[in-house]
Amino acid sequence: MMQANDYMINEPAWCPGCGNFFIREALAEALSELDIDPANLLICSGIGQAAKIPHYIRANGFNGLHGRAISPALGAGVANKNLKIIVESGDGDSYGEGGNHFIHNVRRNPDIAHFVHNNQVYGLTKGQASPTSDQGMKTGVQVNGVILPALNPLAMALVLGAGFIARCFSGEKEHLKETMKAAINFSGYALIDILQPCVSFNKVNTYGWYKKRVYFPEISNPGDWNSAMELSRQWGDKIPLGIFYQKPRPTFGSHIPVLEGEPLVFRTFNPAAHSGLQEEFL
């Protein structure tokens, strides 16, 4: 079995103190405890600080375009259903530039765990507002403060039919690790919105700000959609953490009969055997 440290490769180019470090550690620990072979793990990301994660974790990696992390993950899952697939990216990447793919992949319900490093800001491009920035936050672009109401990714995913939604905080690493394990093991699309302090650009939502607010509510029935919606909508003085909703529904792949059996990628192929395709045109 690989130790957590064995999963961590290369020196991250993140700012000292960045919340991303704990997320990376939690992931490494989760992978180690689940005993996942890096050769059978694929991490897809977009572009941003969070999206650099494929360079820092031992795994197959597809570090694609800004906002487009889920789409290649879906395609890869069609090709090889034996791959464990994690999509990991920032809030801007996942909910802004990639908003359309977020919406429709929740509906598709592929077997993917989606970990969003939500620092409520665009880190890599130096501090502009993201879709999850709180109203009033001032930036170099939003000079009078953000005027748009923040997007609520968990409520949105719930409405779209997500089978697994959770909120974590990178300052609660043990909880994050356990939640990641549950998400990876979940059959279907599993979203974890991870509150992640950005020490360089988000001076509002700091470690202290989150620490004061987060709490672990008692969740007796994770299949209760209404309570999940209530928890998802709590924001402000009190911010609940936990798996708000967990109820599997048929996955994308389960609707596709040809995916049964051996992964497509390992099946043999011979063009000459296909000449019968012409018959319908005779």
């Binding site: 290649p72 890869a76 899952g77 090709a79 090889n80 359309n100 990628v265």
Partner: peptide, 18 residues
């Protein structure tokens, strides 16, 4: 859902070997 997704999905599938 759009052509952006279409090409990126195809790239993911191709990367994974089909």
């Amino acid at each position: 859902e759009d052509e952006i997704a279409a090409i990126n999905m195809a790239l993911g599938a191709s990367y994974a070997g089909i």
